[in-house]
């Protein structure tokens, strides 16, 4: 078994300087730009970025794939969040198995507990799920929720069994592996669109919300305060924390583009110039390339910047409506 601390570091990408092979960079997307006179995208699913920079389809082609997660320390064990339920592979994607029944639908986000990889959580639009066997089976995890809609989830990398979930009416926290949830009173009473946790400072969390902009927590999600007055009423679908520098963070949204803070959220600057449109759905800092920020722009594709958004370069996936970026570090042998 991988020592617990090592597993945490692998999961968060904090050991990338020692890596002998790159992390695998996944994107969950739907190709909607060419979708006309149809309710179905022309393609959808998980793509990964090959060394050549080419994006290659990975896993089953299912509608409504929202994200992918790899078991900490075991990148061959993968879970896909999809409209059809949770799809699991234990052989690096050679075979897949749906591990949820008919009751589970519209899974938007999925996460392993970095300190206990057997424990996993899923946010579905009809209520959250929990798994105690690494995603092989799932149970409903609705206790304590006033409304069941959830869209984003993180497993606290500092405390096993602690998770935060973004619901229709704010942020909820669980300290018993999702057996029960308690609403965080200081979180905004609106739909939480994205939750992220810092890779370097575990108590630092950032949330993007619907109509209420960006919110920061500096105490592990116990209390929250709004940040960035410039996007205070925006729908922010994207949020990212730099895994190398806790002072650097980014949010993005509809008509908002990309906004960057380099001082821990004290001030924010618009860094949209250079992107084709101001509709950003996913942001992620590349753990492999220090300071590189990836942005998924609605139906235009992926772009990256190595200067915190001052300039942007074409990163492919043209025509995609992005839902998530996920970096999975390799196992060090």
């Amino acid at each position: 078994m991988i020592p617990r601390l090592l597993a945490v570091l692998l999961a968060t990408g904090a050991l990338t300087a020692c890596a002998t092979e790159p992390a695998r960079f996944y994107a969950a997307v739907a190709m909607t730009k060419a979708q006309q006179n149809s309710s179905v995208p022309t393609d959808s699913g998980i793509y990964y970025r090959a060394d050549s920079g080419e994006w290659r389809h990975f896993g089953p082609r299912i509608l409504g794939i929202g994200s992918i997660a790899a078991e900490p320390g075991n990148p061959e064990h993968l879970l896909i969040a999809s409209a059809d339920g949770v799809i699991r592979s234990t052989d690096g994607g050679r075979t897949w198995r749906k591990t949820t029944g008919w009751e589970v639908v519209d899974v938007r986000a999925i996460a392993f507990d970095p300190l206990n990889p057997r424990q996993a959580y899923a946010a579905t639009q009809w209520g959250p799920l929990r798994s105690a066997d690494a995603g092989a089976t799932w149970q409903l995890a609705q206790q304590g929720l006033a409304k069941l809609y959830t869209q984003t989830v993180i497993a606290d990398r500092a405390q096993s069994g602690r998770a935060l979930i973004g619901a229709e009416d704010g942020i909820y926290v669980s300290t018993d592996a999702a057996h029960s949830w308690q609403r965080v009173d200081s979180s905004p009473e609106t739909t939480i669109l994205r939750l992220v946790q810092s890779g370097v400072e575990a108590r630092l969390l950032l949330a993007g919300t619907q109509h209420r902009g960006a919110w920061l927590s500096r105490d592990g999600g116990a209390t929250w305060a709004q940040t960035d007055p410039g996007s205070a009423t925006a729908n922010l679908y994207a949020a990212a924390l730099n895994p190398h520098d806790s002072a650097v963070m980014a949010v993005g949204g509809w008509d908002t583009g990309v906004r960057i803070s380099t001082d821990g959220g004290a001030t924010w600057a618009d860094r949209t110039a250079g992107l084709p449109v101001k509709h950003v759905f996913v942001l992620a800092f590349d753990p492999e390339v220090k300071g590189r920020l990836w942005a998924s722009v609605f139906e235009e594709g992926s772009f990256y910047s190595d200067d915190l958004g001052l300039t942007w370069l074409d990163g492919g996936l043209h025509g995609a409506y992005g839902f998530d970026y996920v970096f999975v570090p390799p196992v060090r042998r």
């Binding site: 909607t32 979708q35 006309q36 006179n37 149809s38 309710s39 409504g64 409209a83 519209d106 938007r108 639009q125 669109l193 619907q210 729908n235 679908y237 509809w254 008509d255 509709h279 759905f281 609605f298 409506y321």
Partner: peptide, 17 residues
């Protein structure tokens, strides 16, 4: 529908014009 607030109307109209 499960789509996002800012895209859902557009996506609906892709098929229900």
């Amino acid at each position: 529908f499960g789509a996002d607030w800012d895209t859902v109307t557009d996506l609906i109209a892709r098929s229900k014009t």
